[in-house]
Design a binder for these strands. Structure first.
Lengths: 231, 231
DNA sequence: CGAGTCCTTGAGGTGAGTCAACTCGTGTGG
DNA sequence: CCACACGAGTTGACTCACCTCAAGGACTCG
């Protein structure tokens, strides 16, 4: 098996302050793996054995209710750590991580976490920054869910995805991973029907373009108006 | 000014592994203060200058939307750290902390945070456990808001408060701090009218007793049925 | 070409928000 | 000590945004 190249990590925040030899050490301990679209990397409630770094693809973090509904807590973009339960002293994963597109991720056994934070300058700092950002994002979502109407929530969800993992094209900002109306409704606590109606209406007004499993935001500023500012 | 007694901290998780001399050091750096009901300890967006430990009372963590609505993100019970923005590498507070009852809290300047985590065994660990728990709680709330009907959300909110800060009495579990219908609606993303109707109905059925700014859960198990299990 | 997803659109019902009017309890000030 | 004001809570009537139910169309893959 060929060695992983150091350039994989050198630009990423948790590792940016480290030298090549240190990155080499870390890489030599990592297990790389590919995950097909739709497969689970780990499941809610399972023992937290490893923590992960996403190199490519998109991860969808999902929580399931006792009654079987599922809601999408957040998406994770390449370059981010995930499954960092150990950082929070948890021994099980709080949610399921699923590959929203084909993904490649590195992983390490949790027992290395403590050593990483102690040994590598900036690793702990940057990891906790990530946690802080996610916490902030979750607070924002709580506020949205509690105060905004469905239309605004869907608009906000689209914009968030466009910002986090979007790619600029001449048509607008394209959401780079496959996404169904059902997925969007799982993010916003509504139904696929309502999402479908909204997207249809927005398409007529030229705010978005969508095809099967694929959305492009063509007029982000106008969408932003819709969701009552913020984010 | 009389010195703070070491017993204030010795039982609390973040400090439980420390010896008396270490606790003495920490206390000598702390600034104790009293906060009247309704006053703000710090405000959303303000520069994070200090972090806090609640000794007595209850803190309400609030986020305000651009349109002026406010929602209650969580409550904090005595013995917990709060305003720990520095732990997450934030330089501003992500939400407002308000005294839901008369409170007493210690605080330290953020520049000490790093030293605390480095010097005191268990401090970092326990602090991050707290963060992890709050993150989990927020996820649960997102799921609730997204999937549950208003009735279930209100039931869940009451139970959560009863669990976290409730006191057992012969009548049932009493929520120990003043709480209005408006407050409850701010937690659950509904209106004070709806909460009022629900509480009235529940009172008739013997699930709760409530007076002005005061709620006692008399039949927690039956409430739990209502909210469709979980928490 | 058939089966499985994914998406669309209509019709109808309803949970919970809005509007409005009133009561009750508490604290304040003349 | 009364009255008055204000905040908190109650309750009814109305309305509408969104869900549910239902049917059918379109794309994709084996």
């Amino acid at each position: 098996m060929s060695k992983l190249d150091e350039s994989l990590l050198s630009g990423l925040p948790p590792f940016s302050r480290l030298g090549r030899p240190q990155i080499r050490e870390i890489l030599d301990l990592a297990v790389p793996r590919r995950y097909d679209t739709g497969s689970a990397i780990f499941r809610e409630g399972a023992e937290a054995e490893r923590f992960y770094l996403l190199l490519d693809g998109v991860i969808r973090v999902i929580r399931t209710t006792p009654t079987g509904e599922q809601i999408i807590a957040l998406h994770i973009a390449p370059g981010q750590l995930f499954g960092i339960a150990p950082a929070l002293q948890r021994d099980t994963y709080p949610a399921t991580a699923m590959a929203a597109a084909d993904c490649v991720a590195l992983s390490w056994p949790v027992r290395l976490w403590h050593g990483f934070t102690a040994k590598y300058d900036g690793f702990a700092t940057e990891s906790y920054r990530t946690v802080g950002e996610r916490l902030g994002e979750m607070q924002t979502r709580i506020v949205e869910l509690a105060t905004k109407a469905v239309e605004q929530r869907v608009a906000a969800a689209l914009l968030r995805m466009a910002n986090q993992t979007g790619r600029k094209t001449e048509e607008g900002i394209e959401i780079t991973f496959p996404i169904t109306r059902q997925n969007i409704s799982d993010m916003t606590g509504t139904t696929l029907h309502t999402v479908s109606r909204l997207l249809s209406a927005w398409e007529k007004e030229g705010l978005v373009k969508s095809t099967r499993k694929h959305v492009v935001v063509t007029a982000p500023h106008r969408l932003m108006m819709l969701c009552g500012a913020v984010d």
